[in-house]
Amino acid sequence: MRFLQPFASALLLLAAGTAQAASSWGFDEGSVSVAAKKGSEAVREKINQKTPLSKPVELGSADALKVILTAKDNGKAKRPHQAFVVLKDQESGLEAPFLFTVKESGKAVAQISQKDIPVQLLLSTKPLKASVVIASFGSAQGLNTPVFDVSIKLDANAPPPSYEKPLRYGQKEEIRHTFKAGPQSPPKVISLFFVLAVLATVPALLVSWVLLGGNVDHLTKAIGAAPLSHASFFGSIVAMEFVFFLYYTSWNLFQVVPVIVVVGVVTVFSGTKALGEVQTRRLAGEL
């Protein structure tokens, strides 16, 4: 049974060869290791081109990530023209290539530390997908396969790298102006209460005048003595208030001023006579 084993594996290889007519690139003896700069022991994991590592590799701020592999063209170690490790941000799709240093024998080494990685990728929230690209001229089919994930651990003590998004022409955020709050009135009940309170002073004033002995008994006497003057004087005072009322409701200043002048002249001329008559009464001891 034991002697059959090499034979079986050779058969398998043959079968694989016929299935894949064209030659193709691949790699062997692959490993990824992360070492802190100052010689502490490296975390080393084997990688292969068929299945990517299940756990992401952690890369600290002072660590160096090293990928070692041997490139092979159809199982034969050979130097390819293109040998990249490509880190890809899963969210934005941005990619950064890192070159392997490849020897004639196909042995390839790539070293990546945080300062080599572009800021946009460093700030990625998800682990970066690392894939190996090995290809060259000729008919051999190239290899482009994901091999492991890298999760970036930024230095907690240093400020995180900042990155300003470049300006791009596009639509901007909508702005709607916030208007100032308008003036507000107190509840109408309160206003009405004070209106009544103010208006109540009028009867209060009249009543107190009457109680103090105020009257208009001399009206007939005054009219009798100077009828025109008294009528027009008192009338002009009322008219003046009416003009002010019209000014409040509808008139403008240019309409108001001439009328005030007219009414004022009437007040002055009729007032001298009317108040003269009042004075004679006072001097006569009747006031």
């Binding site: 005048w209 002995g213 105020g214 009257n215 208009v216 008994d217 001399h218 009206l219 006497k221 005054a222 008294h230 008192f234 005072i237 009317a274 108040l275 009042v278 009747e286 006031l287």
Partner: peptide
């Protein structure tokens, strides 16, 4: 105004 001009002494 009315009181000033037309009030009679009481």
């Amino acid at each position: 105004c009315a009181l000033w001009m037309y009030s009679a002494p009481t």
